[in-house]
Design a protein around this nucleic acid. Sequence first.
DNA 1: AACTATGTTCTGCATAACAGAACGCAAGAA
DNA 2: TTCTTGCGTTCTGTTATGCAGAACATAGTT
Lengths: 272, 272
Amino acid sequence: MSSTPDESTPDKYPLRSVGRALDVLEALGAGDSKGMGVGEIAAAIGVSRSTAFTLLQTMVARGFVADTRVGNGRLYRLGLALVHLGDRAVAEMGITQIATPILQQLTDATKLTSRLAVLDDGHAVAIGRVDAPGPFRMMSSLGRRELPHCSSVGKALLARLPQDEVKAILKRLGMPRRTEHTLTTPAALIEELKVIAERGYSLDNEEDNIGVLCVGAAIYDRNSAAVAAISVTTMKRADEDVHRLGAIVRAHADRISLLLGGPAHAALPSPR
Amino acid sequence: MSSTPDESTPDKYPLRSVGRALDVLEALGAGDSKGMGVGEIAAAIGVSRSTAFTLLQTMVARGFVADTRVGNGRLYRLGLALVHLGDRAVAEMGITQIATPILQQLTDATKLTSRLAVLDDGHAVAIGRVDAPGPFRMMSSLGRRELPHCSSVGKALLARLPQDEVKAILKRLGMPRRTEHTLTTPAALIEELKVIAERGYSLDNEEDNIGVLCVGAAIYDRNSAAVAAISVTTMKRADEDVHRLGAIVRAHADRISLLLGGPAHAALPSPR
DNA sequence: AACTATGTTCTGCATAACAGAACGCAAGAA
DNA sequence: TTCTTGCGTTCTGTTATGCAGAACATAGTT
């Protein structure tokens, strides 16, 4: 399965029309505008207009895509059926319900946007969020796959994985440079992961966006596996502040771990 | 288009495999358990195991479905790609960003769970939510289609629609009795909609669930169209409390309307 | 060790899904 | 007005695609 030799056709999935339907959804999700026309979608996913139309019709009938007449044309956008499924997908990961109240407390204590994330196929994916109060608000989207090497939650989770798994993930996803502070070699990152595993919190210090600092900490279940991580996002600030934040984030992560029946970071069985 | 006479084959969509793929997602979303097996899914949507398997494989490859090995078998559940799409679907309705802070204020002021909803194909659909503080929490899911005749947000929105449109929706969706307090005739509901349009807030007074009371109010855009509604959910309580709540909810809805460039309820141009 | 209940692969046929062309419609230009 | 352009939508023939059922594999059970 994992040793499939031919990777020449990575976009060929068993069911072509289903794959294309998913392409449509992703195209609509990636669309920066507030809706796309049939032709636009057809071009985006590389099919004829009639094919795109049939796909859209099917999904409109089911509420996965919504359409609006506008003048002559028609604009398609993501339907509300997806809201339900997304909500359920998050709910099915039991962590969310338990973590959200603590996340709220973390945001109350720090006045910062806090997030809950898991590792999905090596990527860091946010599945919960509590926005900071006030008008200044970081744009943070749920469910988007983020590269783990330049994200605080990603690093917090990688720090608890066996070293060869980390290497495999980094090799598969790559470590593209996002800013001048991004760690771009496995060796450098693995070195930092050791510090993180020891200290109990991770940093993204302008490694993904200049001026943006994130502080993360892992959450452990009853098997002491790091099943999720939380983080807060803020502007770059002084080191002493950062360490104070780290302690706060770690403390809140610990409280979630305890609710899950897992150990706090200080009580972890295996040092790595 | 809207007068399609033949409704004999409501389950026949142009693309069979795509329809079935959506069936799979809905089955997984409706699944009460924490995952389903291939056979279980096949039975749920009425296809052979091999067909279900192929469908699942396609969607797993794209992250729309997640799978976990468990002993011999394998459990499938909704994938995190849906979280992103659901989040985007909500974000594309610009109201959410504007309304959420006010929703938070409403919850702070009332200590109750508050929700933001729109009308989708006649149904009331929640697209935003702020949970009440404390351990007592109403179970409220996002994106699920709810019947408008027994929901406070549904009624708040229907109250601003032309009467024939209301009748059409009620006829199409029906008005099933949910509790002994449910209004089950169009005439009775339309009578109450007049009161709601006048008063500026709507009630669901144990009409959907015994013991549960919701108070809703509509939000108006710059064209004075009711584009959304908000509500709070609470336990049944005394009438004077209810009216006090109504005023609070209406005031918060008005503040959202003003942010959208629309009129407050008291400043509405056409009385109905 | 046989048995059962899973998930997975294989195979051949019917039909469903595709592309391209034709059509309808509305808005803007001449 | 009339022509033109750009949409969305419908039609139609051909192809290969997706389907069911059976065969295979694997792990837990008696």
